[in-house]
Amino acid sequence: MKRIINLTINKIIYEHAVEVNTTLADFLRYELGLTGTKKGCDTGDCGACTVILDGDTVNSCLVLAVQADGAVIETIEGLSNEDGLHPLQQAFVEKGAIQCGFCSPGVIMSSKNLLDKNDNPSNQEIREGLSGNLCRCTGYTKIFEAVSSQCSDNKGGSHGKI
């Protein structure tokens, strides 16, 4: 059973026929080729598939593509532009917050949403904001440093506090 859905992804409007049992993660990856969004577990545990849906982060592996009909979605592909990386992405590179990189798109989308809602989150708020995203490599410290360096208090400073 296919349905036509209309949605905006990274400011581009898409109209697409999807099988109703396709998840948003699979739709992004396999129908649109937006493979920046990763799938680690497919069951809501790891956060690799995090995207921003109508202003809130969700596990796209637990949302049906048809449920996103009419929605505005941001994925990792939408962050950089012709001028280069998004400052948050740049911070991840500079602080060494990326090792294998598999969790990074999800972690960055969660961090972006956190900073969009509150440009100066406390350390506790950063930890809570990232609690849905697992990272197997970094031990999280560098990730916190990268996000923390983008808080309005720390911008311009050379080191983000932990």
Partner: peptide
């Protein structure tokens, strides 16, 4: 696949069963 967007990915487990895909249903 840019020229032919019609492709599907089927994940199977070691027993060869279709794995982690949602069943077909009416919505």
């Amino acid at each position: 696949y840019d020229s032919a967007m019609d492709y599907q990915i089927i994940s199977i487990n070691q027993k060869g069963e279709n794995f982690m895909l949602l069943p077909k249903f009416e919505f």
